[in-house]
Design a protein around this nucleic acid. Structure first.
Length: 263
DNA sequence: ATGACTGGTGATACCAGA
């Protein structure tokens, strides 16, 4: 059995205490973090080492973005894509060694895309769609079982947001984003593990704004995902969203996802 | 419906997040 988790931590240095609590309570073998907001030299390696997460691959940058995959089972860095083609640290891939030898885990932080859902008026929205386009061409050529996970910054299903109609023009849930993410899914036949285990239309949010008027009304969105190759999806045995972390002191605005695989 | 949030920074205003 291998347990894999993903969490947009929104500054790993600020929230290392919460990461420690999460690791002790959920005990994943592998944890993929997004928005670590630090360069690799300042990543809290010693704290992870002390917890037994002795295998770490960090793709950081100063102040913004950044991803890291830490593990208590052996792994090696496998890939490092720049799907936005602008130097930002938004992806790192690893290949597990040891008990789950050969499993590839792609840790990705898809750009948020700015405020205006129009690539002519908003460069960031175009970059988000282009990022997905490059991911799709990559997925089309994939030839081995893979788990891709992280902060996708898109809530694809109507029931992945608190009010589908109200959010149709809000970046993260616009039809063009949902369609573009759908093309990525179809390029490889990815299986959305969140919905395999918690079928639509059940509530399944992973993000709530820091703004109180959204949080207090449970106006969440499902922006974080774990998608598996079809043969790997058949090995997934349990999946959970650890929603309680959103109620901890000084929390990340995202909560972790955890999946157990029988491999 | 969404303004009243949060983190990082050669920073004590501004950018970015979504």
């Amino acid at each position: 059995m291998v347990t894999i988790a993903t969490w947009n931590i929104n500054s790993v240095r600020l929230r290392m205490g919460q990461v420690e609590r999460f690791l002790s309570e959920q005990a994943p073998d592998v944890l993929c973090l997004q928005e670590i907001k630090t360069r690799e030299e300042l990543f809290p390696h010693a704290a992870f080492e002390a917890l037994g997460y002795t295998h770490r691959v960090v793709h950081g940058q100063k102040g913004y973005h950044g991803v890291a995959t830490v593990s208590r089972i052996p792994l090696r860095e496998f890939s490092r894509h720049d799907w936005q083609d602008n130097g930002e640290a938004r992806h790192v891939g690893v290949e597990l060694l040891g008990p789950a030898k050969g499993l590839v885990i792609e840790n990705v932080y898809i750009p948020a895309g700015g405020d205006v859902p129009d690539r002519e008026a908003n460069v960031k929205f175009g970059q988000k769609l282009d990022f997905l386009g490059r991911m799709t061409r990559w997925a089309d050529a994939l030839d081995r079982p893979t788990l891709i996970l992280g902060d996708f910054n898109i809530a694809p299903l109507d029931c992945d947001v608190y009010d589908h109609k109200a959010l149709l023009k809000v970046v993260s849930h616009t039809p063009v984003e949902v369609e573009t993410l759908g093309a990525f899914r179809d390029a490889h036949g990815w299986v959305d593990l969140g919905r395999q285990h918690i079928p639509a239309p059940e509530r399944n949010y992973s993000w709530w704004s820091y703004r109180s008027y959204w949080r207090e009304k449970d106006q969440g969105r499902r922006l974080d995902h774990m998608w598996a190759s079809p043969e790997l999806a058949r090995e997934s045995r349990a999946h959970r969203i650890v929603e309680e972390t959103r109620r901890w002191d000084q929390p990340s605005d995202h909560v972790p996802l955890v999946t157990e695989f029988s491999i």
